[in-house]
Design a protein around this nucleic acid. Structure first.
Lengths: 119, 119
DNA sequence: TTGACAGTTGAGTATGTGTTCATATATAAT
DNA sequence: ATTATATATGAACACATACTCAACTGTCAA
């Protein structure tokens, strides 16, 4: 217990780097939110939905047609996106129009596309 | 088969929007790459690793200590990050130093943090 | 050569997740 | 009221994935 105040099975190789980095790490909550956000975008169906909604607000049927998928599946994914605050909707009669909730989503696409084009 | 040339069980509500959006959609490969990239970043362990490597290049033991996790687990995740081209490494004796492979990763963090702070 | 150590890797397991199916809700039209 | 339609939702299934454990490779030191 003299030199191992860390909760893992490793020796500390570069103790100064480890200590400094530990001190600079944001709190768990920040990482959690960050990862959750990217995880939502990191699904091919949802990324397609977001791309479509970046062009037009659309109802569930429209999106299902654009992606060639079932309404149920799209509705589930829209629920996920809505609960994550990435998408919002307005109801008009029987139809529900979905749109992007956040202007950052466009920026997310740009960064991502820039990355994959850079490779 | 007269009005349903789409591969799903829905009626087309706004056919013009659907057709236009379909025409503007990038190819499957682009979406696939885009989603894959965000999926990799969208894990709390990997996002922590990337944040740490954004500050210093580090060996596996260092990262394991910073995150308080096992070397094996970190090594697995570093393999994933390396195979995705997000991280690269250099070997020095027994140690393997990992670093960010891509200058866009910093930008990804910025966009993500901006998003979660905006909420 | 032998032992110690940094790191990798495959198998196993537990958990998470995306889609489908069936059903429910809500609104509009007849 | 009844029917049709647009969407939502819970359960179930199939598949993916993050961690652990054990075994392995490669490098350094004695």
């Amino acid at each position: 217990m003299s030199k191992n105040e860390f909760v893992c099975d490793c020796n500390v190789i570069h103790e100064d780097v480890v200590t400094n980095t530990k001190n600079n790490m944001p709190e768990e909550y920040t990482f959690s939110k960050l990862a959750e956000f990217f995880k939502i975008v990191g699904d091919i169906t949802r990324v397609k939905i977001l791309f479509a909604l970046d062009q037009n607000e659309m109802c569930v049927c429209d999106i299902a047609n654009v992606l060639g998928m079932s309404k149920s599946s799209i509705s589930h994914q829209l629920g996920t996106l809505r609960r994550s605050g990435i998408v919002k909707c307005r109801k008009v009669g029987k139809e529900v129009f979905y749109m992007l909730d956040d202007e950052h989503v466009k920026q997310v696409f740009e960064v991502g596309i820039e990355h994959i084009e850079h490779k």
